[in-house]
Simulated scan of single mutants.
Amino acid sequence: MDLENFQLFLKSDMAQTLINLGAIQGVILSVIIWNYPQQHKIANRILSLFLLSLVYLYVGPQVLELVDSPFQRLYFGFRMVTPILLILYIQSLYKKVPDKKFSLLFFLIPIDILVIYLSLKLRSNGIISSLQWVIINQSWFIIIFLFYLKLIFKQFNNYKTKVLQNLSSTHQVGLRWVSQLFFGFLFIVSFDFLLSVISSRSGSLDSNTASILSILAFTMFMYFITIKGKLSPQIYQLRNLEDSPITDNKPSHVEDVGHLKVVSEKVINLMETEKFFREEGVTVKDVADKIEEQPYIVSQAINSCLGKNFFELVNGYRVEESKNLMMDEKLNHLSMIGIAFEAGFSSKTAFNTAFKKHTGMTPSQFKKEALF
């Protein structure tokens, strides 16, 4: 299909139908997630609002084309609600929301609206040209979006840190899902911005075609989220880490170092003598209860004295245990997944990933080399 025929397709009823299906799918999915019957409803409802804001952001301009007003572009003043909701969604997975500090982000929306309004006034009064108006708005969008992007990265890194400091398995926390959600959002926003730049500064792509391409990307993203939810419904049942400790790697006082060293020795003893790492889904709180210490003390002891987080510690022991099990002739009847479960892993994927990270080879490769 050449470019001309492709553009004709984009202007056809088929393309418009796909766009409508994406919007409808987004609304339906939002309603389902909002009413998902789980205890952790706050995160699901923020996710639901995030999806609705995406529908608003991508389908709204199609509706506004029917409105004859010089201030149509003020619609985009609410475009930053979407990244704010993504920030709050990630935050809700590991701490209490709403956080007053992040609630202040909503005050940036009136500033965004004001910038767009003033640029429109300047253009309508002939003070700036249409091209200058486009450059101002595109530059402003880059500045404010990069600001939100930095905050999203920060929230994701905080979430990831808390997960790895407190849990031995990421199965019920959805690190991969959150990263896919973020990078998918980043892609469709970047794609939309790139198309707008191309259509405004060259004649190779008209604005209508650019708009339809952008909305088709949005539709694909909506269907990805829908399919992901059907294949992995646990993403709407993610474990909340609000009460789990998060620590830095340095003890605050010199006298604390000795105590942390004692605690780290207790943790090692628990892992090596009782093989506590084989407990399914073991957490830092489970270890703390076992050795009668506070969870944040145990987490800090592992970080500062052992030089690793809880996730790395436990899965390191599990990998070594699985290697021993593979070499045991009495257990030759066990499959790889059976060995993984015996060592404490919750899934074959987690087993393969951890094994490859610690040994540089897959479990099958290791067993083959060890036997020959």
Rank of each mutant, 00 (worst) to 15 (best):
L3C: 09
L3F: 15
L8I: 05
K11D: 14
M14R: 08
M14D: 02
N20L: 15
N20M: 14
G22M: 10
G22C: 08
Q25N: 14
I28M: 14
S30V: 08
V31W: 07
Y36T: 04
K41V: 09
I42D: 12
A43N: 03
A43F: 05
S48I: 02
L52V: 01
S53R: 06
Y58N: 07
F71C: 12
Q72T: 15
Y75G: 09
G77N: 02
R79C: 06
M80N: 07
V81A: 13
K96T: 12
K96E: 06
S103W: 09
S103M: 14
F106N: 03
P110H: 11
N125W: 09
N125K: 14
N125L: 06
S129Q: 02
L131S: 15
Q132W: 08
V134I: 13
I135D: 01
W140S: 07
I144R: 11
F145Y: 15
L146F: 10
L149C: 04
F153T: 05
K154C: 07
F156H: 04
N157H: 13
N157V: 02
N158K: 06
T161N: 08
L164H: 02
N166A: 07
N166E: 05
L167W: 04
G174M: 03
L175V: 10
W177E: 12
F182V: 09
F183Y: 15
F183W: 15
I188D: 02
I188Y: 01
S190V: 15
V197K: 07
R201G: 12
S202R: 12
S204R: 06
L205H: 10
S207Y: 09
N208I: 08
N208Y: 12
T209I: 13
S211F: 07
S211I: 05
I212L: 09
L213H: 04
S214M: 02
I215G: 11
A217L: 08
T219K: 04
M220F: 14
F221R: 01
I225H: 03
I227W: 13
K230M: 09
L231I: 13
P233V: 00
I235E: 03
Q237P: 04
P245D: 12
I246S: 11
T247C: 08
N249G: 08
H253E: 11
V254L: 11
D256L: 05
V257E: 13
G258K: 11
V263G: 00
K266Q: 13
V267G: 01
L270Q: 05
E272V: 12
E280T: 14
V282T: 11
T283G: 01
A288W: 00
A288I: 00
K290G: 02
P295C: 01
P295A: 03
I297M: 13
S299V: 05
A301D: 05
N303L: 10
C305N: 12
K308D: 03
G316N: 09
G316W: 01
Y317N: 00
E320D: 15
E321P: 00
E321I: 08
L331W: 09
L334I: 11
G338R: 03
G338L: 01
I339L: 04
A340H: 04
A340S: 11
E342C: 08
S347N: 12
K348T: 07
T349W: 01
F351T: 01
T353Y: 00
A354R: 00
H358Q: 10
M361Y: 14
P363N: 10
P363A: 10
